[in-house]
């Protein structure tokens, strides 16, 4: 299969899924049911524009602006919309604040619900059977595997997105990030920290 693009092996075909998708797309285009540029636009939107950089900006704003953070916790959707984000699979977003005493993490046990406007499309591990099965029954074990060892004194709250509300975690601001500007802070905020399976990263390459 890996030879699919080699000119010398032109008898080798693409994987079935790729062939089948071309068959589907060509038929639907010919029938006038979809347009090629709309498909291109959707792929481009989620590959380039709508992703965790949006959520990172929300988090960084909350770290530097206590009034914004307050609005974000109380009315997440509206506060996120202040930065221009919102839409499909995020018509209502609740933001969960991690503190030294409480750690939040998000899962969708039934499928793959995820706050698209702030995080983009979910990564494979989030959609995996293992994460969906285990996050609710052994979250600490899952977090340890993913490199986040929580003290037993920390309360763990797991949010199973079963309905129309989508959840995003507001990670704790890293120690040592006090002097950083908002844009630098945003670069510390990983996708996984906003799902709640990682901490926001330490500052690197900035200041001392």
């Amino acid at each position: 299969m890996s030879e699919a693009h080699s000119g010398e092996h032109h008898h080798e075909t693409e994987p079935y899924a790729a062939l089948r998708t071309k068959a589907l797309e060509s038929l639907l285009v010919e029938k006038g049911l979809v347009s090629s540029d709309a498909i291109d636009a959707l792929v481009q939107a989620y590959e380039q524009d709508i992703g965790p950089l949006n959520g990172a900006k929300v988090v960084a704003r909350a770290w530097v602006d206590p009034a914004y953070k307050q609005r974000l916790i109380v009315k997440g959707t509206e506060a996120i919309a202040e930065l221009g984000f919102g839409g499909s699979q995020g018509a209502e977003i609740v933001v969960l604040e991690n503190t030294p005493a409480v750690h939040n993490m998000v899962v969708c046990t039934l499928c793959s619900c995820y706050p698209w406007p702030v995080l983009g499309l979910p990564p494979t591990w989030y959609k995996s059977h293992a994460y969906r099965a285990r996050a609710v029954i052994e979250p600490r074990a899952v977090l340890r595997e993913l490199g986040l060892a929580l003290d037993d004194s920390v309360e763990v709250r797991v949010w199973d997105s079963t309905a129309d509300v989508r959840y995003m975690v507001l990670p704790r601001r890293p120690k040592g990030s006090e002097g950083l500007a908002e844009a630098e802070l945003a670069s510390l905020v990983s996708r996984d920290s906003m799902i709640g399976v990682a901490e926001a990263g330490p500052p690197s390459g900035v200041g001392q």
Binding site: A17, A18, K22, V34, I39, Y46, G120
Partner: peptide, 15 residues
């Protein structure tokens, strides 16, 4: 991880 691992995944998502 890329958003789509293969081009067909993005096309199916959009379709």
């Amino acid at each position: 991880e890329p958003v789509f691992h293969e081009a067909w995944e993005g096309r199916i998502f959009a379709l």
